[in-house]
Write a protein that binds this DNA or RNA. Structure first.
Lengths: 210, 210
DNA sequence: GTCTATAACGAGATAGAC
DNA sequence: GTCTATCTCGTTATAGAC
């Protein structure tokens, strides 16, 4: 690669390369912002923080995401898509219902291992300060999770591998809130032990392995 | 009462009256700030918000609480004291362990009815952005709750009214995280139904009334 | 697409009068 | 104790050059 300062070379020699770079920068912004929101909250990070980490300017950020609300919307949208893909992957694995629930809880544990809060849980805490489109996306994310869980729970009950009182929908809500709470409380203590303990107990109540 | 603008009269005619007013203003600041933190988060409210609501100036706020960190510390300290008093009151009621757990969950429900998050849960979400003294207070608050719960759980197990696998300490942690999560997730939806459903399921697993 | 420069505003905080 | 006035800094956001 020729030694040429980024400020003096074009970096986009063809239209296709320009598209690629736009997408790359956009992704990098989303990656950094996502982590900052999960660690510090939507009200706890700034364009300046992101620009500093990526060594670009705040103005460049505003080119990709005109307002912070736009950025937040893009963040939760992408997060929800990735989560939906993860749920589809669990389904594709073809495991039984209890294994699916374990895999689901592992998604949360992976977040905690990076010392983050669930993006949606963090936004739920800040809900009252969020622009309306983000609020809607938070609700949609929670609903999608609970719908998926309800389906898994019903199939497990039908197969006799899961046992729970009340509706599958209510039970799904309890799982989401239980795991979100386990993340929330575990993070200040550091490590995943507290989360694992709470998650195990939560799922054990459904499989009867208590 | 003589019609005299607050700006022209002394309002503190005696030293005792001065003390009373200092305490009153301080309480009013704490009350308003506490609600704002529980609704919007520690990073989601400002001295200006509090001053505006109380119709005093920001400078007056700084007299009572020089820095925002000081205010935050006072907030969680008072909150923890009030919570400890509420737990003592539950103990004083002399109910059995299951009734104590119900009363404990009701403390959370009361918070949600005011459309707030638990102060400690909110601060847990913002943990990475908080000054160190507040972080310590958050941990202390969680620990105190879990110690109290562990004691109730053990007495219930001894009396045969509560049944749970694993240690009382771990179970106490699960209850705290379960209720905090139920608050967190319920608030965006409005109403207490979601919380009540999750709380009932959580406690039903301990009393065997599932 | 990214930059420099700057606008416009709000934040936390302090000084000094009353 | 509370005020007015001010400071300094950080924030989101925009304009215009390259």
């Amino acid at each position: 690669m020729p030694l040429m300062p980024a400020s003096t070379r074009t970096r986009t020699d063809t239209p296709a390369a320009a598209d690629r770079q736009r997408a790359d920068t956009r992704s990098a912004i989303l990656d950094t912002s996502e982590r900052l929101v999960q660690v510090r909250g939507f009200n706890g990070f700034s364009y300046g923080d992101v620009a500093g980490e990526l060594a670009i300017t705040k103005a460049a950020l505003h080119y990709h995401f005109p307002s912070k609300a736009d950025l937040g919307e893009a963040l939760i949208t992408r997060y929800a898509e990735r989560f939906a893909a993860a749920l589809a992957a669990i389904d594709a694995d073809g495991g039984a219902a209890p294994a699916k629930l374990d895999a689901y809880a592992d998604l949360y544990a992976a977040v905690l291992r990076e010392e983050r809060m669930c993006l949606c849980g963090m936004l739920a805490a800040e809900y009252q300060t969020l622009p309306d489109p983000i609020r809607v996306a938070v609700i949609d994310f929670l609903d999608a999770n609970e719908v998926w869980l309800a389906r898994v729970l019903e199939s497990g009950r039908d197969a006799g591998t899961l046992h729970f009182a009340g509706s599958a929908a209510d039970t799904g809500q309890s799982i989401v809130s239980g795991l979100e709470g386990a993340l929330l409380v575990a993070r200040p203590y550091g490590g995943v032990e507290r989360f694992e303990t709470a998650a195990r107990r939560l799922l054990a109540g459904l499989t009867g392995t208590a």
